[in-house]
Amino acid sequence: MNLRAVGAIYKFEMARTWRTILQSIVSPVVSTSLYFVVFGAAIGSRISEVQGVSYGTFIVPGLVMLSVLTQSIANASFGIYFPKFIGTIYEILSAPISHFEIVLGYVGAAATKSIVLGLIILATAGLFVPLHIQHPVWMLTFLVLTAITFSLFGFIIGIWADGFEKLQMIPMLVVTPLTFLGGSFYSVNMLPPTWHTIALLNPVVYLISGFRWSFYEIADVRVEISVAMTLGFLVICMSIIWWIFKTGYRLKH
């Protein structure tokens, strides 16, 4: 295994984070803080408890997951798309490095950034609402699994995109709506029966539900199903990436 190459890609991507710290870290933290101010303090004070938890506290896992999902996709998709766009991908493709190692470098860096960001947002949330985490190991497991899975998904988008519009299209038109409708700000059990059934088709519901369970032991679906769905999406993403490298799709002519 070419660990030095993995390290080189990883460090390169992490260095980009520090160069663009306002965009990478500060901006999502400010956005999430605004969510807490608006939904937690302003509107949340007028909403009664949800499943025995104050509304401000209830939305914390959903908000963390919202940032982790969007940032994982954004970081990983941009990370691989930009070398394609400016042409420096030639260096990656011609280096003695396996496909797995390329993915490890890019996805590892993207996931690291998302996890760090998720933890920062969690700490920020602690400034607004009282926090208690019932299952910290499971919380970290869900956080890491989700960051890796959606970084893989972002990597796929970055390979698929042949323009900046496409790079933004899936995150803006698919992922963000699914996240908002996936129970970030409410329990899907609050929905009418028909919408509840439709909501269960949204994979993000399972991620947020499992993550919220690790905090408060309250969930919209059984935690085992959440874990299975997360792992299932992980396997699907890995399979697609395996196919991309096997065929050279949008990487090699």
């Binding site: 660990l3 030095r4 460090k11 390169f12 420096t88 260096e91 280096a95 490095i97």
Partner: peptide
């Protein structure tokens, strides 16, 4: 390989980009 087109990471320093290439080759 020195490709025909000038493909470079504009915001990297010369030292960083050359060191990166060495790392990529293990």
């Amino acid at each position: 390989l020195v490709p025909q087109e000038l493909h470079t990471d504009s915001f990297e320093s010369v030292w960083a980009t050359v060191s990166f290439s060495r790392g990529l080759f293990g």
